[in-house]
């Protein structure tokens, strides 16, 4: 217990030191204050931003696109992944293909999405889904592989039918890995949407950051980064909290 508080304390100290350095370095002229404005200045802009209704609109656009892409990519990717991994023939055909596509950087496809969908809500969503679905599928492969055959054998020898095997063996076995898929999906998804917004859009946090960049408005850019970082960390911690709740069933692998 004591060790846990200790590590938490050390972590806090490191964070405080980083912010301290961020505040101190530009003020002491150790770095160019135009490139790295002091933390206090960035946070003043940040607090202004989060009270600005105009910014709320941009944030809402980004979040809507991210959520829509997420709600499509995760269930579809998980289902496809499970179906492919469960069928030996489909597995042999599609698994390598998914790995091939996964290894290609998704950003180079962005212009094609603009041509296909125009600069629109669905272009962002489609690109978000495209950047996410392969990692979800690959994690679903791992989820299926994490189902132990001896567990299935036990369930069958105690008379479980297919529906019971799915509900009582497959789902609980796969849950921890699928939660991992949810976490990774959100990261890939958010990245995809912001990239699409920075590249070509009329609204959204990515659009704002792009515009600020061209206008050399560094404090604004950094305030935008703080916002995105905060949201990502929040979501990540939320999923990790769920993961910790089912930790005892990862313990016995």
């Amino acid at each position: 217990m004591a060790a846990r508080y200790e590590t938490a304390l050390i972590r806090l100290i490191i964070i405080a030191l980083l912010f301290g350095a961020w505040e101190f370095a530009p003020r002491a002229d150790l770095v160019n204050a135009r490139l790295l404005p002091p933390a206090s200045e960035v946070f003043t802009v940040f607090f202004g931003l989060i009270q600005d209704p105009g910014f709320h609109g941009h944030l809402a656009t980004t979040l809507q696109q991210t959520l829509t892409a997420f709600l499509i990519a995760v269930p579809v990717g998980a289902l496809l992944g499970i179906l492919i991994a469960e069928n030996r023939f489909a597995g042999e055909v599609f698994k390598p293909l998914v790995f091939f596509v996964f290894s290609i950087p998704k950003s180079i496809f962005l212009p094609m999405f603009i041509l296909a969908f125009g600069i629109s809500f669905w272009q962002k969503v489609a690109f978000g889904v495209f950047s996410t679905i392969f990692i979800v599928m690959m994690t679903a492969f791992a989820a299926v592989a994490s189902v132990r055959s001896d567990h299935i054998r036990v369930a069958r020898s105690y008379g479980a039918n297919l529906r019971q095997i799915i509900a009582r063996v497959y789902l609980p076995s796969m849950t921890p890995v699928l939660l991992e898929a949810v976490r990774l999906a959100m990261i890939f998804n958010f990245t995809g949407i912001l990239l699409a917004e920075m590249y070509a859009s009329r609204a959204g946090v990515g659009n704002l950051i792009g515009t600020w960049g061209r206008g050399f408005q560094i404090p604004q850019i950094m305030a935008g980064i703080v916002t995105v970082a905060g949201l990502s960390i929040l979501f990540n911690e939320l999923v990790r909290w769920f993961e910790r709740r089912c930790e005892h069933w990862r313990g016995d692998r």
Binding site: R148, D150, V154, S157, G159, Q164, H248, W249, R250
Partner: peptide
């Protein structure tokens, strides 16, 4: 049946593991 590996479900408590055959029915 009792197998070589205990093959308990790690997401269930000992008691729920023992209950498993009954709960299937």
């Amino acid at each position: 049946v009792v197998f070589q590996e205990a093959s308990l479900f790690p997401w269930l408590t000992a008691e729920k593991n023992v209950e498993f055959p009954l709960s299937l029915r």
